[in-house]
Amino acid sequence: MSRLDILHFPDSRLRRRCKPVGTVDDKVKRLIDDMFETMYEAPGIGLSAPQVNADARVVTIDVSKDRSAPLCLINPEILATDGEAETEEGCLSVPGVFELVKRPERVRVRALDRDGRSREIEAEGLLAVCIQHEMDHLDGQLFVDYLSRLKRERIRKKAEKAQRHA
């Protein structure tokens, strides 16, 4: 396993729409393993393939405090949503920024698991937020897109400045 580099906003590669995974082969499994390692090391509670510059509809998630609930979704689709809740979100591709985002409170999702089997998941709370946040990435969408244009521009300028000085 190895740790991957995480792309940072406003990298244009974060804006691509990712291709669905055909078969869950060894290459995909290796990507999943590397993504978990990268996510845990960051540390983060969710990571999507485009964030590590991989063109695949894959996300890894673990919202537990002790790494006890790893969850991997391949080709996820939202089947239903319900309610509305506002949560403070952050993103490994936008380090240091935390902003309130309004999303559905509960989601039902269908996806393939690491073994290529189709599964349905119902989630609420932080897990529901995290699933939606990561799925957005697969379509080139970032959580800062939910903020006002003024805020987003300020974050972009700050990020660009930080990257120049890194």
Partner: peptide, 12 residues
Amino acid sequence: MSRKRPPGVAWR
């Protein structure tokens, strides 16, 4: 996605 650090913990 990343979790916000509890208050009082340095970002660095």
